[in-house]
Design a protein around this nucleic acid. Structure first.
Length: 821
RNA sequence: GCCCGGGUGGUGGAAUGGCAGACACGGCCGCCUUAAAAGCGGCUGCCGCAAGGCAUGCGGGUUCGAUCCCCGCCCCGGGCACCA
């Protein structure tokens, strides 16, 4: 027996890291083929951004994903638990500016720090997958993919607004704009137009929705709901309105074609080119003044939905295609230029916004749906209830849905409209006016236009010198790298200039999981054999905050690559688990707010295993963990208990295995396994703690430490523990007399025969309230149990004189008696 | 306004129609110790001396039986939002 030393969670780290490396316990079998008999499982956590050392949030994600990976591995799965770094991005530039160094140095130094911390946390990555998105060998393929999308018409350029800080003379990312002001200097941010690159994602909107059927039940409902919301599908009709003295009609989108007869005016977005074009000379002055006024409005004013409606008549009339009625055209800011067509038909009776406008401008209000609700003109409340069409010519009497269909059909046959669907989701703006990202592989040539850099000239590497991170006049940093920018046109050979934008880092993270199986592949972005072997990702783990960004883009790119014949599947992540945040006293931790709890400090206090156990035991993975509410001390105590227990069991067992103890062990084993399968990791740990308690009692009392059942239980406990606390489990496994590593042991299996109980506790209820408990044979018949229960003393006493109305018997677990009256 | 979650002891959380509060944290008590720490053990939802009663946000309903299913409401968190 080993007894007298104390459990030291720190002393065991280096020892086992070495053993694991030597045994290569974390490596998948056959990265690009082979071992097909072993069920493969591809586990990926959203890869880290190297902002410094690992923090509490990282520890949480990887504690969860590593427990899952280790569990599947012990169940005989061939697991690829991958790791890489999302190493392009703005913080590297900020750090470089502040400390006057190369973004590379900062980035790669942080990566090394994080890699070492991962090792010391005992995360079982297959390090052969490792790459960093800022490696030229990686972003080369980012560029290659960009060119394929460009060829397919999925990458295009158009003008869009960027956040501009007039003081710093620089473009700001959205997260650098706080309340409409520059994060660094506090100056009010303005919008500035710039021609930028987009990926055409909206064309896939319907498939993004449809393919969610594949994810239902495997992704958190919440994420699917957020994405549906974000895509914002609405269906209705396009309707063309003729405008007096203009050849082309103006198209509007409406979800309510049934209310077409209620249209009494027409509105175009004040900031749209159309408004400018339609405005007559008479109204020019008023229009310009209004447009000016709207442009001056701050972001906060613009976002307030309850401010009074404003607008201006622009002198023209539109003609209602259903009845030729003339409708005055207004410019207003409540109509958005970028949604639908930037113009609407206004139906004040049945749309609150239009009604507010109509009342402000004293325009008529015509009810065309009789919903039985009070008159909108009187109440100021537009009616949106169900009802029948009125004031609608031939269509009177139809229901809303009949009316919509009939009117749409009529418009269609007259060539002035059609059923239509629009989406709120916008095309993906991928241009960034930044240095530390993937250069866009396009050359601008005066005679040839946009010329793709030929594949064999990739990668277009970032210049290592001769650039400024924040050049004068707000140019892109790459624009300042004069030597780098000047290039011969690949097509005509004349002097030309490189594109100076870099790609959004979400491009990098939209396909990294495809490259992990063969990160050194040189014939394409990913090795088809490796993709065939491992993709799609079986277990994807990461934060909910990526619902509308990363996850959308990764899903989209997968579909685009599928369409290009490069992938056989359409969804990249079969199963998604969200983990919550680690907070402290109710406050989130972040770079700006400061890390209230330091991971390395926690590790040095409690050891890596206890930190991991605390993370996982705190609650369901998706819930936030308030570090003030949890107890790493408790985790250390438990691990110490397991460690001591493992040293108290003699290698020589005596006697026959105690059946009662074995039953207990196997029941807890089965319960733990079920919890692991359901990914209810906090419950699995609770069951392991119970098992620890059971074994402690068995060792201290009956049947004693030498009984084979005690050893059997301890071995199972330690094997299962290795998913959560690998260092401690190894040490305990060794103390139990095993080598070389618990990581190569299998997950223990519960013996089904031991799970069958001879007797059961029957709950006796009267009127649903528990009145007694009886030990009964597990196979007791319903009739026998009914007799048994009705004759029990407590039941007779409780029932007294009155008879019994009915008896519900659920043998052997429960009997519920309903007394007469 | 629309769309998702959620509300259980002092705390984190268990229980998805059948013993509410598993497992922990915290607290109290005991053993061990010269003492402390560690360790081990006991108690710990509320009211009540007890018998017993009351308890899963509130109010209804379904059911022999509801934390769980249904309806209405309140509160908290999240997403979208002048999106036609």
């Amino acid at each position: 027996m080993i007894n007298d030393e104390a459990y030291d969670p720190h002393a065991i780290i280096d020892k086992w890291m070495k053993v694991w490396d030597e045994l290569r316990v974390s490596e998948a079998h056959g990265l690009t083929g082979g071992h097909e008999d072993e069920p493969r499982s591809y586990v990926v956590s959203m890869f880290p951004y190297p902002s410094g050392d690992l923090h509490m949030g990282h520890a949480e994600v990887y504690s969860i994903s590593d427990a899952i990976a280790r569990y599947i591995r012990m169940q005989g799965g061939n697991v690829l638990n991958a790791i890489g770094w999302d190493s392009f991005g703005l913080p590297a530039e900020n750090a470089a500016l502040k400390r006057n160094l190369d973004p590379r140095d900062w980035t790669y130094a942080n990566i090394e720090t994080q890699a070492e911390s991962f090792r010391r946390l005992g995360v079982s990555f297959d390090w052969r997958t490792r790459f960093h998105t800022s490696d030229p060998e990686y972003y080369r393929w980012n560029q290659w993919l960009f060119l394929r999308l460009f060829e397919a018409g999925l990458a295009y350029r158009k003008e869009a607004a960027v956040n501009w800080c007039p003081n710093d003379q620089t473009v700001l990312a959205n997260e650098q704009v706080i309340g409409g002001h520059c994060e660094r200097c506090g100056t009010a941010v303005v919008q500035r137009p710039l021609t930028q690159w987009f990926f055409k994602v909206v064309g896939h909107a319907q498939r993004m929705l449809d393919d969610m059927a594949q994810l239902e039940g495997k992704w958190p409902n919440e994420v699917l709901a957020i994405q549906r919301n974000w895509i914002g599908r609405s269906s209705g009709a396009h309707i063309d309105f003729k405008i007096a003295d203009r050849d082309e009609p103006v198209r509007v989108f409406t979800t309510r074609p049934d209310t077409l007869f209620g249209a009494v005016f027409f509105v175009v977005a004040v900031d749209s080119p159309l408004a400018d074009e339609l405005c007559t000379a008479d109204q020019r002055e008023a229009f310009d003044a209004y447009r000016q006024q709207v442009a001056m409005a701050t972001e906060i004013e613009r976002l307030a939905t309850d401010r009074p409606k404003t607008g201006v008549f622009i002198g023209r009339y539109a003609s209602n295609p259903i009845n030729g009625e003339p409708l005055p055209v207004y410019a207003a800011d409540y109509v958005l230029a970028h949604y639908g067509t930037g113009a609407i038909m206004a139906v004040p009776a049945h749309d609150q916004r239009d009604l507010d406008f109509a009342r402000a401008f004293d325009l008529p209000i015509r009810v065309v749906i009789d919903s039985g609700q009070p008159d909108p003109a009187a109440t100021g409340e537009a009616t949106d209830g169900d009802g029948r069409l009125v004031n609608s010519g031939d269509f009177n009497g139809l229901t809303i849905s009949e009316g919509s269909e009939a009117i749409t059909t009529r418009l269609e046959s007259n060539g002035v409209g059609a059923a239509a669907v629009t989406y709120r989701w916008r095309d993906w703006l991928i241009s960034r006016q930044r240095y530390w990202g993937t250069p866009i592989p396009i050359v601008h040539c005066q005679s040839c236009g946009l010329v793709p850099v030929p594949d064999d000239q990739l990668p277009v590497e970032l210049p290592k010198s001769g650039y400024q991170l924040r050049p004068e006049g707000g140019k892109s940093p790459l624009e300042s790298a004069e030597e780098w920018v000047s290039v011969a046109c690949p097509r005509c050979g004349e002097p030309a200039r490189r594109d100076t934008d870099t790609m959004d880092t979400f491009v990098d993270s939209s396909w990294y999981f495809l490259r992990y199986p063969n990160p050194n592949f040189t014939d394409g972005p990913f090795d088809p054999a490796g993709v065939q072997r491992w993709l799609p990702v079986d277990e994807y783990i990461g934060g909910r905050e990526h619902s509308t960004g990363h996850l959308m883009y990764a899903r989209w790119l997968t579909k685009a690559l599928h369409d290009l014949g490069m992938l056989s599947f359409t969804e990249p992540f079969t199963k998604l688990t969200n983990q919550g945040q680690v907070i402290m006293n109710g406050k989130a931790m972040s770079k700006t707010l400061g890390n209230l709890v330091n991971l390395q400090e926690q590790i040095s206090l409690f050891g890596p295993d206890a930190v991991r156990v605390t993370m996982v035991f705190a609650g369901p993975p998706e819930d936030d963990i308030d570090w003030a509410d949890v107890s790493p001390t408790g985790a250390v105590k438990w691990l110490g208990r397991v460690w001591r227990l493992s040293g108290e069991l003699p290698t020589q067992v005596e006697g026959t295995a105690d059946v009662a103890l074995r039953r207990n062990v196997h029941r807890l084993l089965a319960d733990t396994t079920a919890a692991m399968e359901a990914r209810r990791l906090n419950v699995a740990i609770a069951r392991l703690m119970e098992l620890t308690n059971v074994l402690r009692r068995a060792v201290d009392g009956q049947p004693g430490a030498a009984n084979p059942a005690a050893r059997e239980g301890a071995e199972a406990l330690v094997q299962m523990l290795s998913c959560f606390a690998p260092f401690t489990a190894e040490e305990a496994w060794q103390r139990l007399g095993h080598e070389p590593s618990v990581c190569v042991a299998a997950w223990p299996k519960a013996d089904p025969q031991l799970l069958v109980e001879d007797t059961a506790t029957c709950i006796v209820q009267i009127n649903g309230k528990v009145r007694d408990r009886l030990e009964v044979p597990a196979d007791v018949s319903e009739d026998a149990l009914r007799e048994l229960v009705l004759n029990a003393d407590k039941v007779r006493a409780a029932l007294g004189e009155g008879g019994v109305d009915r008896v519900i018997v659920r043998a052997p677990k429960l009997v519920n008696i309903v007394p007469a009256r």
